[in-house]
Design a protein around this nucleic acid. Structure first.
Lengths: 357, 357
DNA sequence: TAGAGTCTGGATAGCGCTTTCCCAGTCGCT
DNA sequence: AGCGACTGGGAAAGCGCTATCCAGACTCTA
């Protein structure tokens, strides 16, 4: 904002007009012929009343000068901001964008500004992001899709977040329930359990699971829940597990690996996320194995698109938007408890990809 | 950040320990036994050198106190920020989340912090968002999916953005090319044109178009381009146009309306966005009209999921992530031209939803 | 050995805003 | 008339930080 200011320029040549600095509150006050204090009080709801005559003059001056209060300056003066930091793994992933949509909705509703960052699933990047986020002094930091099992980076992240909390910030983790912060998690275990029993009830007996990499809690919980469900349903056959990336292409890749291995002894493939299931279905179909007919497929999350694919995907519905909303409401609550662990219930949604046998 | 500070409390009762204010640079300087200036110089790359002995002491003190620079204060002192404001219609929509992903990637690459806001497709909301965004004094404001044809709100929006530019900010519009700002648009017209001629080449002669509401430029361009293409290909039959919301459900609704009207004289339905096409396909299928067999369907954008639906959707590929990246690169460029209008080329992608006749 | 440069710390004046604190004016009472 | 209790404007002290300016300590050259 370096303004070229050269009142002594008498050359007649047009002064190189740099960007004019935006009007300050001072400018408004001068224009209105009132003090700084009065201008400030008029333009934001302070506790103090301002006589209408004065206020109108200030408002008019502000409009005339196109005044826009400098939020950074306000933050400094007030010692607090109206910001919430949202960090997700990948905003193009419907899982995260749905959560983000919910979070942003209630944040904006509450007059909060959302600053968002993407980790690309890198713990180092996540740490770095939280560091700079902390510099913003947000009211809330929301972490969705965090991951980092017992590493130095993880400890640093925890430390960073704890410092943040120590200075009055609030952090909410979404679906990473083994970090020492308020957590809003899906009922991954139960959802997968119920999916398994339901599928067993449909007559399926032999399963494969497409899982995420082992350091991701969400994946572990879903796999475990599924296994428990099978056990509970009396399924005793071995379940094949394939590990892969948490993306559509990861699922595709896992699908290919299953194909190579041979699908003869597998009746149903459970992918721990819908996007992975989608990828796997694509791989199957590409090889002439028709999902829903030759092999059943189920996912988890119920992202919007899975009802529009063919066959429509059986999955476990996670109220993603709702989770985003709840996360910020939780953080905003008067009775915020930094140790609370809420699990949002999930429900099995049966669709055409898993016909009864 | 109201800290309870009561050193005189001798009651023995544990002082109600409010959140401790985060360490300030002042604290660090004191801890390190140096001046504020030296501390500041050590902790950010200032032009001035500071002797290693001093710097190390400062760094150690900062680490010990868990210091995190207050970005707002820096912004105020420096008179500039490292922020970019990104406003989209709906972050859960893959169209926008892809653009956002691209934009965020290069923003973070450049050390910029992204603050994002969602308009929900409301012009009023958009205006309000831009107002508060301006208060952040971001370096850049990126508007994706803006809409507002000739209203008072539109004028206010333009005014707001112009004030922003006047004070050195940069604004880039994505795919809303008739606002007086630098614009990065898709080659909507050409893409639709080519889709039309390709489809005519496949033997289709009778078309329906699912369009967005009339005040959205992108929709208009796509419809016009499609019409021009048909004309150029010598198609002379009347094209049915249905207007609807820019969402999956809007598409579904339009599909239903087409079904009610009767599909006998229609061979191919072109929806101006993929999400709308997806909705329409769902409606068709629900009524026993099989897309790709009983009726051809084509979309626009090539969002990730459309290759995974069945039949895979013929569409016009828009390099969405790329657009997001280019938008912020454009804004960051030394040779930024606030009047530039770039159109990103699109390519027709033929898939199973539009078999040759 | 002076005089002119360089370095590099420290003091300090802001940045744009909020929020005490002070004070003059007005009101309602006795 | 006299006096406490409001009201509401203005001066000014910060908020946490940067950047300018100054001063002392060195290093060079002539």
């Amino acid at each position: 904002m370096s303004t070229v200011e050269n009142p002594a320029d008498k050359t007649g040549a047009p002064a190189p007009v740099g960007p004019a600095a935006p009007a300050t509150l001072h400018d408004v006050a001068r224009e209105a012929g009132v003090s700084l204090a009065t201008a400030s009080r008029s333009l934001n709801g302070s506790t103090r009343r301002v006589a209408d005559a004065y206020r109108d003059r200030v408002l008019a001056a502000a409009a005339k000068l196109d005044y826009s209060p400098n939020l950074s300056a306000q933050a400094v003066a007030r010692g607090s901001t109206m910001t919430v930091g949202l960090v997700v793994s990948d905003i193009a992933d419907p899982y995260f964008s749905s959560i983000a949509a919910g979070a942003m909705r209630v944040a904006e509703e509450s007059g909060l500004v959302v600053t968002m960052a993407v980790t690309g699933r890198s713990p180092e990047r996540e740490l770095e992001i939280v560091r700079t986020l902390r510099g913003q002094r947000p009211r809330i930091i929301l972490l969705a899709g965090s991951r980092s099992q017992g590493s130095a980076v993880r400890d640093a992240l925890i430390g960073e977040l704890q410092s943040f909390e120590a200075s009055g910030g609030r952090v909410v983790m979404i679906s990473q329930r083994d970090l020492p912060f308020a957590t809003l998690s899906l009922d991954n275990d139960d959802g997968a359990f119920e999916l398994a029993t339901t599928m067993a009830g449909f007559g399926y007996r032999r399963f494969a699971v497409i899982a995420g990499t082992a350091n991701v809690r969400t994946s572990l919980d879903r796999v475990d829940g599924f296994r428990r469900g099978l056990l509970a349903a009396g399924v005793d056959s071995e379940t094949v597990v394939v590990e892969t990336e948490f993306t559509r292409d990861g699922g595709y890749d896992a699908g290919r690996r299953l194909l190579e291995r041979g699908l003869d002894d597998i009746e149903l493939v459970f992918a721990v996320t819908d996007v992975m299931a989608l990828g796997a279905m694509a791989a199957f179909r590409e090889s002439g194995v028709e999902p829903g007919r030759d092999i059943a497929v189920a996912g988890f999350d119920d992202i919007p698109t899975v009802r529009d694919v063919t066959p429509a995907l059986t999955t476990v519905r996670a109220p993603l938007v709702d989770i985003g909303e709840r996360a910020v409401r939780l953080a905003l609550g008067d009775d915020f408890d930094r140790a609370s662990v809420d699990a949002v219930p999930t429900t099995v949604v049966v669709r055409a990809s898993t016909p009864r046998r």
